[in-house]
Design a protein around this nucleic acid. Structure first.
Lengths: 185, 185
DNA sequence: GGTGTCATGTAAACAGTTACATGATTTT
DNA sequence: AAAATCATGTAACTGTTTACATGACACC
């Protein structure tokens, strides 16, 4: 469960509540989870159980007793261990390719509409990611290497969408030639 | 559930058994499911229930009665409908980025080992995908447009991994400069 | 006679999402 | 006074995977 490691990572630079963690994960472009409560509070429960974090209740009179989670030494060791796991290959899920695979059954207009729709989605994602990059202020006391790494993480994500955008454009161009060829027959 | 649409897509050009579908999905680079029995047979059950497919038992004496599934007219209509759904943006899951984000805590050797490991994983994926492309013989009677589309689907996948490979190389290069700068201080 | 592939199906678990529920505090 | 945000947690569901179970048939 990589979300547990991600939480340890976030907590390694600052102590936070579950609610804070939820927001950070939701905002993050590379922590791919939706950041719903069920995941966060379940993960925190597990981390607490394993003594990788401790929590401190603030003003325990309040109804949802605010709990501030702090990483332990054991938690830091666990985080470092997770950083050395054998890297997994990147995965993707593109439902558009499922549609594309059999879209020869659409006429030219319908087909173009789908391509156009996909291109629009990608462009919107690029804007959204750039916005996230701007907004990012969290995570203090960074080393030069750390700053560079986070920069490169953002670049990774943007390049993913840019690559996809270039591909759609090429697909559309090639399709023009393909249609011309069909007309010529 | 896009797997149901994917199955309708596959069945639109040929009638097949659940076992055949399973193998096709496992082999496919863009149908991202593992192709386990549970999904296939459950999906076929649903499609049968909805009259999108029919099945014909062969030599009904045999113990696992071989069932050949055929798409119906309603199934073809459903497939065409699915092709016109609003395209979803592409998604990715890169656990390596989770590791990378906090890997400033690793020393240079450990860090390089992880980068090297990731690069090796990607290269292996590229080889695997190229192999799959070679092996692909199925799906008969293709139109020129269909051939082009399938070609582009493969290109999409290869470009995903190539993009990632280029990114790791750039990351490693930039890191050299970063380390030099640190040493210079 | 053993191994591998063909063929269908089920059980149990894990991962992840949406929606629900509650109540305090802050902002408008 | 209403609306938004802070804060914690649970329930129900969907999607996906691994593993189990069974048996026929082909090949070596």
């Amino acid at each position: 469960m990589y979300i547990n490691f991600a939480i340890l990572g976030i907590l390694s630079s600052q102590s936070l509540t579950g609610y804070d963690l939820k927001k950070i994960i939701q905002e993050s472009p590379f922590m791919y989870w939706s950041g719903n409560n069920n995941q966060i509070y379940k993960a925190l429960g597990e981390l607490l159980e394993a003594d990788f974090v401790t929590n401190e209740e603030q003003h325990p009179g309040g109804s949802p007793a605010k709990k501030i989670y702090t990483i332990t030494e054991a938690g830091k060791a666990e985080l470092k261990r997770s950083l050395q796991f054998a890297p997994e290959p990147p995965e993707f899920k593109k439902t558009f390719l499922i549609q594309l695979a059999w879209s020869d059954q659409l006429n030219t207009n319908e087909f173009n509409a789908q391509l156009f729709g996909y291109e629009r989605e990608i462009k919107q994602q690029i804007l959204l990611q750039q916005e996230k990059r701007m907004r990012e202020t969290n995570c203090p006391n960074r080393s030069p290497r750390e700053i560079y790494i986070w920069e490169m993480i953002h670049e990774n994500i943007i390049s993913f969408y840019n690559n996809e955008l270039m591909w759609v454009k090429k697909l559309r161009q090639g399709l023009c030639f393909c249609n011309e060829k069909v007309r010529a027959e």
